[in-house]
Design a protein around this nucleic acid. Sequence first.
DNA 1: GTCTATAGCTGGATAGAC
DNA 2: GTCTATCCAGCTATAGAC
Lengths: 187, 187
Amino acid sequence: MPAKKTSKEELTVKAMQLFRKKGYFNTSIKDLSEACNIPKSHFYYYFKGGKVDLMVEVLEAVRGYFTERVFPIATNVDLSNEEKWSKIAEKLQRIFLSQKGGCIMGLTTLEISNAPEKDVFLPIIQSYFSEMINCIEGIYTGQPNSRELATRAVQDIQGGLMLMQLYGDSSYFLSALERSHPNKQGI
Amino acid sequence: MPAKKTSKEELTVKAMQLFRKKGYFNTSIKDLSEACNIPKSHFYYYFKGGKVDLMVEVLEAVRGYFTERVFPIATNVDLSNEEKWSKIAEKLQRIFLSQKGGCIMGLTTLEISNAPEKDVFLPIIQSYFSEMINCIEGIYTGQPNSRELATRAVQDIQGGLMLMQLYGDSSYFLSALERSHPNKQGI
DNA sequence: GTCTATAGCTGGATAGAC
DNA sequence: GTCTATCCAGCTATAGAC
C-alpha cells in the first residue's frame, strides 16, 4: 500500500468531517491543514484542482460509501423488507448521529445550487439521492405508489436532519426513520 | 417616511435575495454593494454590526413576514381547515417558486449550526419553524397526533425544497404540499 | 513527497472628507 | 447620510528549496 494513497484518503476523510460541519465556503484550506497538521501547500500536491478538486473527492467518497455499504442492503434477497429497513436505519443512525454536523450532501446542495461549482458538485449529489430513493423504493415493494413514498421518506429524513441541527434534537431525524418503516406505508 | 428607513428596507430586501440564493458565507459585502449600486461602506452606516447585523435584520424580516402574513391564516375562524391550507399552500408557492433560490431559513440553519454565529441566528430561525409547526398543527385539528403530522409536513416540505434545488424540479416541493393537505392526514 | 515562503487577491471593516 | 480611500486580515494558489 503506497504512502500516497493512504495520505490522500486521510486528507479526504478529515476534509469530509470539516465540510460536513462547517460547509464548503466556510471551510478554508487553512482550517483543513491545521486539522491535519500539515502545511497548506500539501493539499495542492494531492488535489491539483485545489478546493474544488478536494470537494469532488469528498463527495464521491461519501457517495461511494453509501453505494457499496448501505444501499446494497435493499437488494439482499435473504432479508425481509422489515429486516432490510432496520439494517439501513441502523446504518443511517450511525452515520448521522455519531458526530457533530449534519448531512454533507444536503448542506452542499443548498450552498452550491446557485454557484458556479454546481456543475461539478450537483451531478454527484444527484446520483447519491437518486440511488437512495431507488433503494428505499425497493423496500416498499407491493405498494402501488412506492416511488412517491420513497421520495417522501427521503424528504422527511432530510428535513429531519435539518431540524435536528436547528434544535439540537435528534428526535426529528429518528421520527422520520420510524415513519419511513415499510410497515407504516399503507394508505 | 424618513429616507433612512426606506433605504435600510431596500438594502434588507436585496440582501435577503442574495443570501437566499448564495448563502451567508458565499455572499460578500461587495456582492451586496454591487447589487444595490452603492459603496460597500454604506452598509456599515445602516448595519453597525456589519454582516452579522445585516443577516439578523434579514432573518427577522423573513420571520416577521410569515408571522404577519402567512401563519395567521391558520387562526382565521371564517375558514375551514381545507380553505386555510389552500391559502397557505398558495402563499408558500408564491414565496418559494417566484424566484431562484430556496429557503433562506433552511440554508442558513445548515450553514451556521456549527459556526459561532449560531448563537445569534439560530434563535430567530427556531422561532420561525416553531411557529410554522404550530400553524400547521392548528389546521390538523381533530387528528390525535396533529403535532407529529405537522412536524412531518414541515420536514417533507423542507426536504422537498432541497430536492427542488438539487434537480431543478419543483414537483418535489409541490408533492410535499399536496401530501400535507389536511384531508390526507388520516391514518 | 514534504516543507517554507510568498505572491496576488478579496474579504470585512473603518476613517474621514463632503 | 453618502462618498473615496484605505487598512489589515484572511483567502487560494504557486514557486522553489530540500
